[in-house]
């Protein structure tokens, strides 16, 4: 995300938080699946799902970001398939809803990181859409530690 260059962002909501991920890392947007539990995995891991014959490990977005559980059942919401580690891994990330796909100039994003309700190390930048703040997540920083051995 270098300055000045336009970035495409996928905007979504997790709990009370409007978040964004770089569209380049978004492989696919899927409905929410019922996952198979992985014994021993940390709480934020929902489990394993079948995406057209491939197994994808899914992380619950609300748990990973310390947000309240979605009000609907576990089948509510959306799973975003994210590429981690420069495409070497594909991980599912559940969100409450996908809001928008935006193209923003790098200069309209602020490198501010202190924002209430979220760990500053997970924030790459802060942007604004329709007057509302959203945080551009560092998905690698958020998700890679869950898989590091």
């Amino acid at each position: 995300m270098s300055d000045g260059e336009a970035v495409r962002l996928l905007i979504f909501r997790v709990g009370n938080l409007a978040c964004a991920a770089e569209a380049a890392t978004v492989r696919e947007i899927l409905p929410r699946f019922e996952p198979t539990r992985i014994p021993g995995a940390p709480a934020q891991v929902a489990g394993l799902v079948n995406v057209r014959g491939s197994l994808v490990t899914v992380v619950d977005g609300w748990r990973a970001l310390g947000q309240p559980a979605p009000s609907g059942g576990p089948r509510d919401g959306t799973t975003v398939l994210l590429e981690l580690d420069a495409g070497r891994k594909v991980i599912g990330f559940t969100v409450d809803e996908v809001i928008d796909l935006l193209s923003v100039g790098g200069e309209t994003l602020e490198r501010r990181q202190a924002l209430p309700g979220i760990d500053p190390t997970l924030v790459r930048a802060v942007g604004r859409r329709a007057g509302q703040l959203f945080v551009v997540l560092d998905t690698d920083a958020l998700l890679t530690p869950i898989f590091a051995s």
């Binding site: 021993g40 940390p42 197994l55 490990t57 891994k89 869950i146 590091a148």
Partner: peptide, 10 residues
């Protein structure tokens, strides 16, 4: 099939 095992997986 393989899968990406999270840390702590038994």
């Amino acid at each position: 099939k393989g899968f990406d095992a999270p840390q702590g997986t038994l």
